[in-house]
Simulated scan of single mutants.
Amino acid sequence: MTAPVTRQITLVRRPTGIPVPEDFALVEVPRPVPGPGEILVRMRVGSCDPAIRGFLDDRPSYLPPVALGAPINGMSLGEVVESNNADWPVGTLLRTFAVWSEYYVVGADALGIERVEQAPGVPLQHYMGALGPVGLTAWVGLFEIGKAKAGDTVLVSAAAGATGSTVVQLAKAAGCRVIGMAGGAAKAQIVRDLGADVAIDYRAEPDLSAAIHKAAPDGIDVYFDNVGGETLDAVLPLMRLHGRIAVCGMIAQYNDADNPHGNRNLWQLVVNRLTMRGFITYDHPEVLGEAQAMLDRLFAEGKLKPLENVRDGLEKLPQAFIELMSGKTTGKTLVLI
């Protein structure tokens, strides 16, 4: 009898700049077997996230780098198909940090592991987007780190992306005035359609600082930063006294980590007594229940519209990731397996 196998996406070489297809390989390996207390999961939805780019470089990050020849790490939504843990019975849907593999084994202590309760009629992929890690990240950054409240002016970079598009909607639902930045006229229109009071096409602005100041002449209370680099430099002098900056990501330097932008305006942290803090969503487990409840409620009320681009098949994960890192996508990039 032939032993069962699984397909994986592995790292063949470390990317230089934007990843290319030759950096990845689709391989077939023996299907893993769960040990005591472990569970075997079949991936149902794979997630492409900018943070994965940092794991592909051989340098320290908040998680270890992917080894050459090893499967790519990333968030996954899957279904338990074999279980040695009574708390995770067969048929359970879950999210966790795993690998790009049709089948994988995890323990109950896996990073970010949590059950998924799929509501009737709600597409499963939403639970990897605005109703899942994307929405939780947006909520934690906006409310737990940024302390956004009704009446605040909130600026969001990469506002047509997965997290940014969700932040725009959450901030509007909370009664904030929202300014979203995106690259290109089409993406700026998407940001407007999501409810932003002002959408700035940064590619069409010769002076980004002037454009932001025009949109917020009285300053910014909360900046949700997905970009870093020159954009962060432009925003810092425009923050209001005691403003808050939630640093979610710095996609401007992910493809060129050896040459990071040197910020020149950090003195503004002192001038305006700003709070600037990076965060990882799952460092805040005490608020995730509240966050999930708000996401589910707003979705049910039609006030949260998941923005996604979806592909089919494990083999599509590398190309989907490449397009994400090339700035060609809008919303959350997902692959159905």
Rank of each mutant, 00 (worst) to 15 (best):
L241Y: 13
E315K: 04
G46F: 06
V247L: 13
V191C: 09
L266C: 02
G54M: 02
T137W: 05
M1A: 12
L142F: 03
L77D: 06
P306F: 15
T329Q: 03
S165E: 01
R13C: 09
D218K: 09
K332R: 06
A199W: 04
S101D: 03
W139H: 01
V81M: 07
E205L: 13
A171Q: 05
A257K: 14
A293I: 14
P30R: 15
V27Y: 13
V222G: 04
A185G: 07
F279E: 02
T16R: 07
Q253K: 13
L307Y: 10
G164H: 05
G78F: 00
W88N: 04
N272V: 06
P36V: 15
V33I: 14
K332Q: 01
G327A: 02
V271W: 12
E114Q: 11
L56D: 06
A158S: 02
A173Q: 05
E290T: 13
D221S: 15
A119M: 02
V80A: 04
A162R: 08
E308N: 14
L336C: 07
M276K: 00
D57A: 06
D218G: 11
V271Q: 09
A186S: 10
T275N: 09
P34I: 00
L208F: 11
A138R: 02
G219T: 11
E205K: 15
W100K: 12
E28C: 02
D218F: 09
R115G: 10
P120A: 02
Y282P: 00
M181Y: 11
Y202V: 00
L266D: 01
G37V: 00
L334Y: 06
L232E: 07
A108H: 12
F299A: 08
N263I: 11
C176L: 10
V20L: 08
D152G: 14
K187Y: 10
F24L: 10
E144H: 03
K172A: 06
P285V: 05
P32E: 05
T231W: 12
D201W: 08
V99E: 15
H126V: 03
D258K: 14
S47F: 10
K303T: 14
A98M: 09
M250P: 03
G249S: 08
G164F: 00
I280H: 04
T281W: 11
E290L: 11
M1N: 13
V134Y: 04
V106I: 15
L56R: 13
A98R: 08
N84G: 06
F299H: 14
V168K: 03
F299M: 04
G135E: 01
V81R: 08
G195Q: 08
D296M: 13
F24T: 02
F321M: 01
